[in-house]
Nucleic acid binder design. Structure first.
Lengths: 191, 191, 191, 191
DNA sequence: AATGAATGAGAATTCATTCAT
DNA sequence: AATGAATGAATTCTCATTCAT
């Protein structure tokens, strides 16, 4: 090995891909990504064996980043609502602040080019969140469905919410809070 | 007119496109669609001037179909909850029964190839639904956000729900009802 | 024969072809010509069995028209110069007044799609002109080359001249006369 | 640089294009040119961004070559006639010896796909020739028309002449000299 | 005869991937 | 490892021509 693969270059490619995919869709040419990343066309393929591989790795990276963001400072001992709110706020703030990443993530989430394996692996780290469901929602609407439904629901609500936040930045906070209210009211039982 | 343009052929192409796009994504080749529709490659372009045109027309058709499905037998005079439930049930049943259409619709909804104009036109018929928000939710979480947020929220929840229904058909009804409960609880104020 | 082929339609197609080819080149679609002519796409092919056939017929028609123009009022008994001048003036005036025809003619003249047979037939009527060479140029530069060279030379000079006349209409007469002077001086011997 | 863009390949493509265009017209497929040049279909587009670009570059190359041929050994201090004759002989000899180039050049000259800019650039090097007009022709037929008319006239006469030379090689020299005589007599004043 | 929809063989590009340097 | 030229399969769209009406 004359030169070891550079972590910097790998990251540059992933960052460029995030931007380019957000702007042009997943059909964007790898050459465009390479140029944006400041590497040669061929170099992209020494870091990612194929475009599909790049797509999957990018998916995993974004998922991992999102997880970190959501879990940083997680108030493990707070009340259920506080913890759910924490996760929601972080998620939504991240999406609002990182439009590229959010858009690309949304596209990757829908693409058949992201493998089932990547999806499984990408969801793995969200155990804590999935666990929230089991905890206090035993008598709520979600009492007898798959725990993953909980996460999917939150993701869907958050996506819509972020979309509106991006569209009307002046009302961003209102959407953030309305979204949370809908979510929280929705999953808990009325008394 | 020598041979009038055949409505059947147009529909065959749209139906084929729905299937092919669901299976292969919007990047699927027009040639594949033509073959599936039983027409020559070139014929597709006598009905749709370009692939983008096909995409937009398909979007409009699916939206129109969905609207009809949701609005058939609409209990205009029933209580708010009954009406919202009606819409939800129809939506979700349609999606569960028409996986192709649902998947393609989801992709079209995200694609930048569907024009703003098509989106506007496609949403036009959903006024009744958007109006639901104004009606009884004056004090709920959605009291001071755009009315379109209501529809987007419902769409997002329904999509997730249909996805799980398709994945676990045995529990389809459970998801359908859980989804509605989350939605209804979410948008109404707890007392 | 339910309806006899209409000479009008045939002429409309030829006229449309002249305009369209002048504007878009010989690669123009037959459908465009049909539309311009006010007939259906297929109708063009009942008058001309193929696009090549149309090209060849158009070539012949334009050649014939040009011949008529040049030969009308031909001063058969005038001096050589007067006759050559007559031909030149008519040619050049026709080209200046019929830009479409001139341009299309120029393209047809260069196209390999116009058959040798059409060329032969198209040139047939120009015997009088070719004959001019034999007459008085026995001692000039053209004394021992093919007589057709004479006609080709005049055509080439006239084409260039018409091009400049079209480009600078204000100086049209100047070019017309300069062109003739060059031609006449060129083919006659200096004394 | 990994593999520098090869000047050889670029030239092979231009040479192939010259041959193919001469044989089949400018409508010839780029794939045919690529095959003739011994490169892959796509390679043509790494050297020329589009077919139009190829057409324009080819035009410029042929013009440049023609200029070099005409200007090599130019007898700058000889009499006017000697200089005009030099140019004529070189032009005509080049065309007779390079039928492909001559035919393709003629087609490019007429094509609306060659831009005004290319034409301007292509003509730039012919200043010496255009200058010939000003010099001794002040009292001839061309005394009060655009100087470019001079060059166009020579080009037209030379084209016709080369055509006949190609058609009757045995009389090539006769046509060459007859053509020059017509040209020279034509542009100079009779005394 | 007239119409214009239907056909399918190309045409010019594009692009993921390979490979010589 | 890095580069970017080379590759050729695949794609969208065009168009001369045919043929059902």
């Amino acid at each position: 090995m004359a030169r070891p693969k550079s972590e910097d270059k790998r990251n540059a490619i992933l960052a460029a891909a995030t931007r380019v995919f957000a702007d042009e869709g997943l059909a964007a040419a790898t050459a465009r990504i390479a140029k944006q990343a400041g590497v040669a066309d061929g170099t992209l393929f020494t870091y990612f064996s194929s475009k599909d591989e790049l797509l999957n790795q990018l998916y995993l990276q974004l998922k991992a980043e999102l997880r970190e963001v959501m879990m940083a400072d997680y108030p493990r001992d707070a009340a259920l609502e506080a913890r759910v709110r924490h996760v929601w706020q972080r998620y939504v703030a991240w999406g609002a602040a990182n439009a590229h990443k959010r858009k690309t993530m949304a596209q990757l989430g829908m693409s058949e080019r992201v493998s089932a394996e990547s999806r499984a692996q990408g969801s793995a780290g969200f155990a804590d969140i999935t666990a929230l469901q089991a905890e206090g929602l035993g008598t709520g609407p979600l009492c007898d469905v798959q725990p993953t439904y909980f996460g999917a629901l939150m993701g869907a609500l958050a996506d819509v919410t972020m979309e509106f936040m991006a569209r009307e930045p002046a009302s961003a906070d209102r959407y953030r809070d309305a979204g949370f209210a809908v979510f929280w009211n929705g999953i808990t039982t009325k008394t």
